[in-house]
Design a protein around this nucleic acid. Structure first.
Lengths: 145, 145
DNA sequence: GCGTATTAGTTGAAAATGTAACTAACAAGG
DNA sequence: CCTTGTTAGTTACATTTTCAACTAATACGC
């Protein structure tokens, strides 16, 4: 009894990647065209807008993203004056990062669009499937395989 | 009545991306360590193994991938002697691509691992959630937003 | 046929990413 | 203090990806 043939369209990493690319493409244009931002920058900005001041290390942990990516994204956001950095006095290796007023405006603008965008993506699925999908994704993202 | 605050952990493109990265990372090491292949190469090889001879253009369409990525992946696979190219005589712009015997062996090897890997990833979810997840992902990947 | 438009695929330069080595600050043991 | 080790974050370099321009082959309109 030979093993069932491989089916690419049943291979979860492939499906995840395709869905992520398709669903991310259109929104990418938003932050890119409006603010010249990369995905890593959008992510950092989003974390700071959402969770308030935090260090680069915190973002690395929360976003499961590499520290060089975060470092460069922070530098770019600082250069755009969307983020302010303040070295912590109790441990000068750390810097507390937070959004500037301009950064908060960008955050408000982009998240409003993001919410509408999310609704549009979700509209392609049955409501029950949509909720289950997000649960499953969070489960998968929780820890490495 | 103000709109609900944005929640990154409800934003589908972000969740998809996180899950895709986490679930792809470990398998990436497999084809990289064993055959020095990139993800684009694995994808092309996979399409050829699965669907038989096809042109680069076919792969671009099936994988929703950029033509330069495919072009370079094909060149690399040809260089590794995993893929053979044959210009079509009825339209010499096209080349039919197919796996060499060595390429088929690689395909067999990697897909066997991929199947086991997929099972492992899926094992983290309820069986019913798992099937629904794949359905939803296929739905999302079908067409651009 | 012949000029123009399309299409498949490649190539080169620029941008982004990953990897590894590095600096600076702190911690701990003596 | 002073060595050794660890951690936050940056930088340099190699690899990969993207973008735009290109070549070569075919299709189309006349």
């Amino acid at each position: 009894m030979k093993p069932k043939d491989f089916d690419l369209n049943e291979f979860l990493p492939y499906l995840l990647n395709q869905a992520a690319e398709v669903s991310g493409r259109a929104f990418q244009r938003v932050y890119k065209d409006r603010y010249g931002m990369l995905r890593t920058e959008w992510r950092v900005l989003c974390h700071l807008g959402q969770f308030g001041p935090m260090t680069a290390h915190d973002i690395v942990r929360a976003a499961q993203s590499h520290k060089t990516k975060v470092s460069r994204a922070v530098a770019a956001l600082e250069h755009k004056r969307f983020v302010v950095r303040e070295t912590l006095q109790r441990d000068r290796r750390y810097a507390s990062l937070q959004l500037s007023p301009a950064g908060r405006r960008v955050y408000a603008d982009l998240t409003a669009i993001a919410q509408a965008y999310d609704a549009k993506v979700m509209a392609r699925l049955e409501p029950s499937a949509a909720a289950a999908l997000k649960d499953a994704l969070r489960q998968l993202a929780r820890e490495p395989i």
